[in-house]
Structure formats: structure tokens, C-alpha cells
Design a protein around this nucleic acid. Structure first.
Lengths: 231, 231
DNA sequence: CGTTGTTGTCAACGGTGTTGCGCTGCCTCG
DNA sequence: CGAGGCAGCGCAACACCGTTGACAACAACG
């Protein structure tokens, strides 16, 4: 832990090879390799051309490193959202951007699905979502709980997709083929609905599902606003 | 792997100490201890009073064991759903039951959040959800994609809650106190919405959020039905 | 110029899931 | 009734994981 510079601005040492930023970028490079290359401390040392344990001079543990990496990617998402969108557009852009980086760096999206980073960019996301639900017409406790619904749902969506991408290729293939193979062979007596929809079930794509899930969030907010207005 | 009995019905050996069922039940006992006791193969052997590696005579690997355990708990959920409910009631009961077992056996709920078990009870759940969305008024491809939305959303919800329960107590405490502490101290200029809602944000409970998320699924389906009817 | 503190290296620890080998005791069949 | 075969279990070990403590090099400071 570097002592925080009191008055002198000497914080940058010339001889320091490793910096937090360099480590984060190396982490992203490994994370981008998805399931082909596990994200381990030893791999990270290899990628940096340094001893694996050197990382512990800059991050307390692997968890703190992952939180920092996650905050970096969250920043990328936020910067990709254009100005001037209405509340629905902002939520859709946030969802699409989050999914994009989560699929690019699966290990990050997966481990952060049920965490709170409490880092700068997370506050920006919170501010954005709360602004959206308030613009939609919710206030006070209603706005608060609906923000949490949107935030955690988005996190859960992209985390789920990212986690799926981390499985070995063969497990993933088995999961995907289930819809087109096993669900066609179920007992028609015991499972009439599955039998009836087997063709349509096999044709649903992940992208369709994601879009419907995002639209469900939006329409749930709209419906809540209408209900409160009517009452 | 026991050879499948061709004609003779000798499948049950008297001397076999360990059975798949006994292993599954021991797993559930460990899983119920939550974050106090990690769910490892060695712990499982301890719980069974047997050598840890004996488990591999009954399950190919830990993943297959977890899938079997998950299917068992899924059966409990399904059996707890009463007869005669309308489609909304069935979805609410499924959601509540799933959450209940996921919180009781966090490690199961957490690891299964992005998996497909392809085991008997999973088909029953699929049948149930498809029946619900069709009773709501959706058909064909619309019913298929909305089933997937409901199924994966529920899995994601309970998986998220379960995963949160698996963290060490101190990490969990830090996450929970964030709302009541750190979010009150943000810069009011940069984050006006957070500042404005800080009190309400701290008062939101997990149960409220879960309920709103489930109702969001239902109202999204209703809205979709209305839209299609109107067109 | 010596002292101090930061940063990287190295070896090692305790934990994980998993596998190969050998023993034991039951089941089946001649 | 005896002999084989084999399923089930214990044991030791492997490869990998995150993490820690001791040590060396080196820059910055008084």
C-alpha cells in the first residue's frame, strides 16, 4: 500500500513496472478470452510477464481486483449511452451496453451479478436509473423500489448470460440442443403444453428473450404509473 | 457405474452403504448450513461417514450431483403448489416456493441460476409455466418466448438472492449498509436523484423487491396480451 | 551516506475437484 | 457348495487454486 502523499506530489515512482491500470488491462485481456482461458492469478502474472504474487502489492485480493475491473467496464457502458434519450431509451441503452460488455468479458459479468462494487461508476448507474423511473412518473418509495427492481434485474440478466458463456463448449452445446432435441421427445400425455409448443420453443433465440425481458421491465413501470394515476 | 439389470431384478445390493439418495440428502444437509460450511466433496464424505471419493462411484462429478440435488429441491417446490390456482396464482406460488428453497439451500440455488438440469422435475416446471402464459392468452411463438422470459427471470432472481447469501458475513454486511451509509454521503450536485431518494432507498427490503419483480413479469404478460388483442 | 519503505521474486501452505490402484466382501454361476 | 467376478470403498496422490511470509533489489529521503 503506497502511503498517500501528504504534500509532496511524488506519488509516481519511475521504477514501478506494474500499475493498477496495467493490471486491470491485462485482466480484461484475459477475461476477453472467455472460457478458453481461465482467469487465475497465475495466468494474470503470465500475461504481465511478472510474478503472479506481485499483484497483491496493488490489490488486497482477487475480489478487489475484480471489483475494479468491473467498475472500469461499467464506465465504458455509461460512456456509450448517447445524450438526449427519453427514459425508455436510456434503460434500453443501458441494458444493451451492459449485455455487450458482459458477453465480451464473461468472467466479470458473471461474478458481479450479485455484488455491489460501491465504486464511482456504480453511482452513475444508480443516478441514471433513478432518473429514468422518476421521469416515467414514479416518486419516493415507489421510485426507490422500482429502481432496485430495474438495477438488480439487469444485473441478473447479463450475469446469467455471461455465466452461461463460461461453461465448457460441450456443456453449453448440450444445454442449447436440449430445446431442439429432448423437448421434442417428451411424453405427449404428461406434457401436452411442451409437446404443442416444441417447434416454437426450439426457435426462440437468446436475443429475443433478452429484449422481451428488458421490455418487461419498462412495461411494468408503465403499468405501475398508470395504476397510481388511476387511483 | 452399476450395470443396468437386463432381466433379473437384482439391482438392489444389500451391502451397499451409499446410495444416490443418501448422498443427495447429505448434500442438502450441508447446503442448508449456508455460508457457515462450504459445500465440498470432502465435507460431504465427512457427513456421510465415508471416504470423499466414494461419491464418484455414484455420480460422474460434482456437477452431476448438484444437478440431481437441484432436481430434488425442484420437486419439493412443485409439490408445494396447490391445485386450482389461476395463472397468476401459479406463477406467484412457483416464485415464492423457488425463493424459499433457494434461500434454504443457497449453494444449490446459486449454481443452478444459469444451468439447465434436463431432469424430470424441470419438465414439470416448463409445463406449468407454459400452461400459465397460454391461460393468460398467449399462443405459439409469443407463448414460447414469454415462457423463456418467465423461467429464466425466476431462475435469475432466486439465484441472485442465493448467491448473496453465500458471501462471508462481513462482505454481506458491507453490501447492505451501503444503502444506509454511503449513499447518504454522495455529492448532492453530481447525484441529485440519489440524494433526493437516499432515505427511501435505505428502506427498501429484499422482499419488496422480489415481489415487485414477480409482479413485473405478470404485468408484462398482461400488457402483451392487451397489445395483441388490440391489434 | 545510511535509513527507510516500496516492489518484485521465490517457496510454501492449505484448500479444491478428481483419478488410479488395491483391498474386501457380496453376488452369481458352474 | 465352491469359485470366480466385480461392484463398492479406502488410500495416496495429482494438478490447480488463492494467498502469505521471508528475502532481495532499488529509489527516495534526511
Amino acid at each position: 500500500m503506497p502511503k498517500s502523499p501528504a504534500t509532496t506530489a511524488r506519488s509516481k515512482r519511475a521504477g514501478s513496472q506494474l500499475t493498477p491500470d496495467a493490471i486491470i488491462e491485462a485482466s480484461l485481456r484475459i477475461a476477453a478470452r472467455g472460457s478458453e482461458d481461465a482467469f487465475t492469478v497465475r495466468r494474470l502474472g503470465e500475461e504481465l510477464g511478472a510474478d503472479p504474487t506481485a499483484i497483491y502489492r496493488h490489490f488486497r485480493d482477487k475480489d478487489e481486483l475484480l471489483l475494479s475491473v468491473a467498475d472500469r467496464t461499467l464506465g465504458e457502458v455509461l460512456d456509450s449511452i448517447p445524450e438526449g434519450l427519453d427514459w425508455k431509451g436510456r434503460i434500453r441503452a443501458l441494458a444493451a451496453g451492459s449485455l455487450e460488455v458482459a458477453l465480451r468479458y464473461p468472467v466479470v459479468g458473471s461474478t458481479m451479478a450479485s455484488r455491489t462494487t460501491r465504486r464511482p461508476n456504480e453511482f452513475r448507474v444508480v443516478e441514471l436509473i433513478i432518473g429514468a423511473v422518476m421521469e416515467a412518473g414514479l416518486q419516493g418509495a415507489e421510485a426507490a423500489v422500482h429502481y432496485r427492481m430495474v438495477g438488480e434485474s439487469l444485473l441478473a440478466f447479463v450475469g446469467q448470460r455471461a455465466a452461461h458463456l463460461l461453461f465448457d463448449a460441450d456443456i453449453r452445446a448440450a444445454d442449447e440442443s436440449a430445446w431442439s432435441r429432448e423437448y421434442r421427445l417428451v411424453d405427449a400425455q404428461a406434457f401436452p403444453n411442451i409437446t404443442h409448443l416444441s417447434t416454437e420453443l426450439a426457435e426462440v433465440t437468446d436475443e429475443q428473450i433478452f429484449q422481451v425481458r428488458v421490455e418487461a421491465l419498462i412495461s411494468a413501470i408503465e403499468k405501475r404509473v398508470e395504476t397510481l394515476r388511476g387511483a
